[in-house]
Each structure stands twice: as structure tokens, then as C-alpha cells.
Design a protein around this nucleic acid. Sequence first.
DNA 1: TGTACATCAGTGAACGCGCGTTCACTGATGTAC
DNA 2: TGTACATCAGTGAACGCGCGTTCACTGATGTAC
Lengths: 209, 209
Amino acid sequence: MSHTSGARQAQKQQTRRALLDAALHLLEGQNLSSLGVREVTREAGMSPAGFYRHFRDMADLGVTLVEESLASLHGMVLAVLAGPDEAEELIDRAVDVVAGHVREHRAHIRFLARERHGGVRPVREAIGAELARFADEVAAALADQPASAGWSAEDLLMLAELYVEHLVSTATAFLDVPEDRPELDLRISRVARRQLRLISVGRRHWRDS
Amino acid sequence: MSHTSGARQAQKQQTRRALLDAALHLLEGQNLSSLGVREVTREAGMSPAGFYRHFRDMADLGVTLVEESLASLHGMVLAVLAGPDEAEELIDRAVDVVAGHVREHRAHIRFLARERHGGVRPVREAIGAELARFADEVAAALADQPASAGWSAEDLLMLAELYVEHLVSTATAFLDVPEDRPELDLRISRVARRQLRLISVGRRHWRDS
DNA sequence: TGTACATCAGTGAACGCGCGTTCACTGATGTAC
DNA sequence: TGTACATCAGTGAACGCGCGTTCACTGATGTAC
């Protein structure tokens, strides 16, 4: 069992973080599959060989990034679904939270979008598994809402998956806004809110259609 | 002006196709940004230098693949929207067409999913532009349906974008089905149909909500 | 039809370069007594 | 507190390798007369 305190451990953690941050920064402009060990260590200011004290290879580092990228997304959804469940208000909050999240964790979200269908299998599978878990949690949260009375578990999961896909596509839409066109953020928010409202209307009339 | 017939031209086209097919095949397992000139020419059975008679670089080849990948998708949507516009039937046809399309153009669709947010800018931008054009066309087709009476152009585009995103995510869901679990196709089709039905219900009750 | 010349798709060798990974090392930190 | 030894994160050199791109070439196809 290894110690978690001590100057040596602290220093190691700091170097590891520097490697992750360097990779995250470089991944804003390229895929994980074209990112090199030398490239990352150069950016982090250390020698290439040091990389192997922290990660087996780039895929290993990538899986670590998936975990921390989705941890923050995870906290986000809990925050929204813990609020009042009046549809209109929930929609506004959800879209605002996604917009803010993308603004604050840009590199992480870009990484997820880029590698979700990317060429590094362990990373792709980790993202897929996390998103599936995420949909399960949303389904569980939906089940607690009065609006879900009479809904089967299957339909709740179907709806949760629709919401998660919508969230992902909204987040990537925010990502793709060029730096010199910040006014596009407003259009994306407005469209996302309307789409969620349309889904919400469909949900309300689902059974009597 | 160059001739389009003659043995020389025909041979050149054939080699070009061999390069595109070799690339498409290799791209099933990796990103464009990690695909090499030597790798593609080796797969196509020619010498590396020959590549430059056909493409400036890999990004150039990638943009060509985007064009041909989306040309077939384009034909697809026209076929579906040209049919009867009764909601239930249209949904069934749409999902079947997507499923069939993925089965028949697997490599092309995988390429689009992988590079839509990938690390090669010209390719990413070409895909984004084509999908935007696609949404415009869907909006135009929706406008012709009786169910759209009273809808603003903005709302029709919002709806079209929701449909296009749904189509893309359904197509990639089919893609990710492992070869040894073909029964998952049925689940994906069923969920996609229900989601489209829910959107369709929302659409019907949009104005009086 | 035949001949002489032009075009150009594809070749094969060559180049300099940066890559991933290994290895024995060093020196700061940790531990036992 | 001090000393002797153990640990191990990070180093710097070395390796063999495959890369992208260039170049002068060759030989089949095309064209002019």
C-alpha cells in the first residue's frame, strides 16, 4: 500500500497533473491517436522517459482523461435534476448549466466529443460506458418526477437516452462556436431550449396520443 | 481541359479509387490524423510517391471522402421524404433506411462519425457544412407537410436540426453494435422509433401547449 | 497506316527527421535504528 | 538528533525504425502530320 502524503508523493501527483494538462491542451487541436509521448512530455517540460512512471501508454492516459471529464459532467446533472421539476424552469437551468460547463471545461468536453467515436478503442469504450451509466441515472431521476406516472421503465430509459444525446449535441454545438462569433451562443441556447420544450410537450401527451 | 475518356484517364481513376478504398478500409480502425501516406499506398499496392499524383495530402483525400460519404446520405433522405407523410409510416421507413444505409455503407458512416469532431480541420468543417445543408433540406421538406401549417421558418429549422441529430446518433448507435451481438440492432430500431414518435407527438401538440 | 514526338501516371532510391521505448544513472526523499 | 541504507521519480543517451516528401526516371498512352 502506497502513502498518499509526503513530499515525494505530492511531487509525483504534480508531475502527473502536468502531463494530463499538457495532453489536454494539445488535444484541443488533434486526436489522441496522433498525440505522441515526446510531444506531451515536451509540453509538460520533462524528459520523454519520465512519462512511463505515470502511464503505460497514451491510451492509458486517455482513459484517465475520460474519467475526470465525465466526473464533472456527472456532478452537473445531479445539480440540475435536484432543482424544482417544473418543466420550463428545468429546461432553462439545464441549458444554462451546459453552456457554463462547456465554457469552464472546454478542453475536457472537446476531448470527449473528439474521442467518443475516435480511433483508440479503450478510450472510446470508456466514454460509451460512462454515457450509458449517465443515461441510467437520468432515467432514475426522471422516474421520481410526477410527470412520469404510468411510464414503463423502458420508455423512461428511451426518454433519458434522448435527453443525453441532446445534451451531448448541444454541448458540442457550443464548442464549435468560433471565438469571433460569440453571439452564436445565444442561437444555440434558444434552439436547444425549444427542442427540449418540444420533447417535453411530447412527453406530456405521450400516453393519450 | 482534360479528357474524361481514354485508357490513361480510366486507369488514373481506377488508381484513385483504389487509394480512396484503401484509406476507407484503414479508417475503420483509426483516425484520419494518424493515417499515413505510406500506409495507404501500401494497402492500395502502389509506391508512396504515386499518392501525390492524386491528392495534395491526407486532408485533401479526407475532404473527398466527406463528399462521397454524404452524397449517399443525401439520396437517402430524399427517398424517405418523397414517400407518404403519415407520421407512423414515415418513422418506420426512416429508421429502416438508416439501418440499411449503415449496413451498406459502414465504412463511410464510421468515417463521418469519427471525423465529425476529429482533429483535421478541413474535414471537420466540410462535414459540418454538409450537415447544416442537410438540415436546411429537411426543413424545406418539412415545410411541405400539412402538419407544418402555422409553423415559423425558425421552428421548422429547429425541428429539422433535432431530426438530423437524431439520425446521426441513431446511425452511430447501429455502427457501435459488436459483430457478435446482432440482436442489439432490434433494440436500437425500437428505441429510435419511439423517440421519433415522441418528437412527432410533441410536434402535433406544439402550438396548443 | 506509320512515324516521331509529347504527355504524364506510377516507380524506386534517397534525404533528413522525429518517433517510442530501454537502460543505467542520480540525487532527493523516506525509513530503521 | 544523527547515521546508514533503501526507494524511486525523473534524466539523458542510445537504438532501430518508419515517416513524408523530392527527384530523375521509364514506359505506356496520346497526338500531329
